[in-house]
Amino acid sequence: MIPELIRRRAILTGGAGLLLAGCDKIIQQPTARKILFAGEDMQKGLQRALMDRGALAPEYRRDQMSPVFRTNGTRDPGTPEYRALVENRFQDWRLKVGGLVGTPLSLSLRQIGEFPARRQITRHDCVEGWSAIGEWTGPMLGNVLKAANISDRARYVVFTCADLYGGQPYYESLDLIDAFHPQTILAWGMNGRMLDVGHGAPLRLRVERQLGYKHAKYLMRIDAVDSLSNIGLGKGGYWEDHVDYDWYAGI
């Protein structure tokens, strides 16, 4: 009876173990990998179908904010160029807005401060699982893109940053639904102060319906494009290109 039970147990639990091991094997097949990666498009399609274009991420009260908002990703770009920008308090820094726009812009921090600012207390969700709530201040990205007369041919907006990953500037991208969302802002202020180096000074993206790695820090350039295929390796962002993170980070 007992050896028989052990044998049966081995078959059942062995089956479960084989399934787990088989998962690693199966996604080496290109077709299986394609199916696995199609989950992202299904999630995106479902979420976009269930939410209004302008549906707002939850906003919080001051007393609901994280006591300490941890830094993540790059804490300091550390390049000589960036250090020089910090030394004269970003007076020489300019945000270039280009690509498929009628009026390319080169904006100083003061000029960005002249756009009407939105202030929002929102939750930042890292892909790893932690969350922090903070207050962000800055102009809506949509207003900056309108000021640059974004072209009708543009379908995506690409962000290029001052911090380097593998020797190349960090980059990310959004489609126009999220780029023109009212809570998608270019934040120059955080928790009532100017944005600090750890959190992406002088300017970072906030895209509140997506995960943290989409919120590009240390912004240097914004380009409107009609396709992501010529950006990096073609998947629209550093992590998307190099470690298979989802481009649509709504979950």
């Binding site: 696995l36 479902l46 298979d244």
Partner: peptide, 21 residues
């Protein structure tokens, strides 16, 4: 116990979010 066996958050998430559906 994990999918994939070697730590890979992106691929774990791909499995999780597809089979969640």
């Amino acid at each position: 116990l994990t999918i994939p066996a070697n730590y890979n958050l992106a691929i774990s998430r791909r499995w999780h979010l597809l089979f969640a559906l």
